[in-house]
Amino acid sequence: MTALALPRIGALVPRTIAPGPLLAANATVSRFLIEAEAFDEADIPATWSDSLSACQQALDRWIKRQIGPLHCLNPRFGLHLLSRDGDCYSTFTNHPKRQFDVGAVEASWGEYHEQEWVVGEGLAALSRRVPGLGPVVLHVLRRQSAWVYPLFTPDIACDVVTYLYWCGEDDEETALDMNCGEDEEARAAMREEMVSKASLEAAYPAWARRWPRGLELPLCARFLRRAVKRLRAPGDQTVRAVAEDALALASLDLDDTFRPDTDGEFVGFGAVLSWTEGDVTTRIYDDLLNLAHQGEYCETMGEFQVQLGDPGAFAAWQRAMAGRFEAIRRIDALIHRLSAGDW
């Protein structure tokens, strides 16, 4: 009896190929990245299937080298091709026109897989060691991350609750009036089910629920510098490391230059910072996502367009990202220390 061998695809047959109209466009983009000196020679892989794939890997290595190792965050950077007519080509969303006349590229970035991190205990422990340190660290974290890598913090959760459940009011009473009227039994049942003002107050301390007025970054930096000097004891190592990271983060000059120009609800958060395990934060965040996905929403943290005729502009963008890369590293270190520390 003869066994018939099933046919196999030969090793030389490529698993993927660039669509015909994109072959030349890919080469144009590769040449643009090389001219922009977007990566170092050492970043280029030893082997590649096509030049754009080699550039993609090289750029990926360059970014990873700039940011450094991370514990909690997982940033993803994408490079999309834009035609001279303004059409966007992305491998994952649409197919290019037959004649795709690529004229520009757009870099965009965001978190690949945001996760919940419990930071309440760590922040409270900081304040036990140095009074006021917890609120200052939290403020630096949310103030600087807002420009670079937005975090879903308790103050944002409280803001979201007002328009998500409370009809834009300061508490749930108006929503209860609208849904239950004077029916006390129904009101009590609904209050039990929904996120109420009482549940927020139980979840977060008052200083975490709102953005502190008058607490500017220079003031935070001065406070943190004094705290670092004070924390000299051998047992202060972890608290000191947090203060140093927060000080370095506060000292970075960051702005919203690359803010995405997208309409709709912003949901491009890099992480969800809850206070205690299983508190209301993730529920609020999930409800926000559900609401956002019913309409227009924005889930990228930053974007930047550059014409292919101007490789110098791409190099300038890379230089401008240096501070942001460091900020991402510091934000990640702070979340990691606060959530994983033995407090």
Binding site: P14, A24, A46, S49
Partner: peptide
């Protein structure tokens, strides 16, 4: 193999050569 480079300094040169070849629309099997 295609795109496989050995020495220091050769990777960028090989990549540039590939780019020019692709720009002309002449890529091997693909």
């Amino acid at each position: 193999t295609k795109g496989c480079t050995s020495g220091e300094g050769s990777r960028l040169a090989a990549l540039k050569a590939d780019v020019e070849a692709e720009a002309k629309g002449a890529t091997d099997v693909r």
